[in-house]
């Protein structure tokens, strides 16, 4: 049929244009970084077998700066004071064994700046995290301990808070670097919300410390899944320096499952309509297929005997 040929020409030029301005142009604009599946192959495997009991004894030293809620050890300082001291609030270690790659964690305990790839930021000042393991054995013991206390199930939100949430705000989920925004109410007479103002003051101080520590305020991640491609996010988290040389973003060292959890949370907050789209889409398209079928019958009946 002649009309189908005309349609084929239109579709052809449309697709060529689409290919040129989308996949092709983006492949030229964005650096290609190979995804390595969170294997951290630049780090040597640790042969030593860890002993959780020995690790527990060593972990007492960690509690000087970190909270370990799973072992009922509270934080020595509140987040703002901690950030004044260290630049950033040190993480609670309860989830470290579940979300971080084992090999990464062992190397991080031995040589934090190198493993987190932040040596370039700490040439003239000390990194707040000192090496905590002197050899492979003590590193393996600590890793075994953290694995033993880690919960079996970690939620997507917990994974985000642990891995990203002390530097990155997520205002669409009411998350700040010092925790969730408290639910407060303004005074009905004065219309002023004192509790909220106090919280904001703390947050402002924390952000000040963070900017001093990192050089700039890390971006809010509310809709980062729409602003960056899936491929960029995973290769960036896996190896920040490969995507953005010189960035202050450390290599966090999440394992594959840990990253998937984090991404799940980013998607839940940043693209909340995804499940709704998937539910409504087939109905709308089905409706138009039916519409088109009926319109076709009408068209055929009207054009019958015209040619």
């Amino acid at each position: 049929m002649k009309e189908l040929k005309v349609l084929a020409v239109v579709v052809f030029f449309t697709l060529v244009t689409y290919w040129g301005v989308e996949p092709y142009a983006h492949s030229v604009m964005h650096k290609h970084v190979e995804f390595k599946n969170f294997k951290y192959e630049d780090l040597k495997p640790i042969a030593a077998k860890g002993d959780a009991a020995k690790g527990q004894a060593l972990a007492a030293a960690c509690a000087g700066c970190h909270s370990i809620k799973a072992a009922k050890m509270p934080a020595p300082m509140d987040p703002v004071t901690a950030s004044a001291t260290y630049g950033v609030n040190p993480p609670d270690l309860s989830l470290a064994g579940a979300l971080l790659d084992e090999k990464y964690l062992a190397h991080f305990l031995k040589d934090p700046t190198h493993t987190a790839m932040v040596a370039h930021k700490f040439k003239n000042k000390p990194y707040p995290m000192p090496p905590m393991a002197t050899d492979d054995q003590s590193a393996a013991d600590l890793v075994a301990y953290f694995k033993s206390i880690a919960p079996k199930e970690v939620t997507a939100k917990e994974a985000y808070e642990f891995a990203c949430g002390r530097c990155h705000e997520m205002r669409y989920a009411k998350w700040t670097q010092i925790g969730e925004e408290p639910k407060t109410k303004p005074n009905i007479q004065t219309k002023m919300d004192e509790e909220k103002l106090k919280f904001q003051e703390k947050l402002a101080q924390y952000k000040d410390h963070l900017v001093k520590y990192l050089g700039k305020l890390p971006p809010d991640l509310s809709i980062i899944v729409r602003a960056r491609s899936e491929d960029f996010l995973k290769t960036f988290v896996e190896d920040p320096q490969a995507q953005l040389p010189g960035t202050a973003m450390p290599r966090v060292g999440v394992n594959k499952e840990g990253y998937e959890k984090v991404f799940q949370y980013l998607e839940e907050v940043g693209d909340p309509s995804k499940p709704k789209r998937e539910a409504v889409g087939p109905w709308v398209i089905g409706y138009f297929i039916l519409f088109t079928f009926l319109a076709y019958l009408w068209y055929k009946s009207q054009w019958k005997g015209l040619k």
Binding site: V284, I289, Y296, W298
Partner: peptide, 22 residues
Amino acid sequence: VFLSKDTFVLGVYFIFYFYLVF
């Protein structure tokens, strides 16, 4: 007569359009 064909083409177009939307 012309409208019947227009409507059919519109139908095809809207299938394409809503595929893109969703």
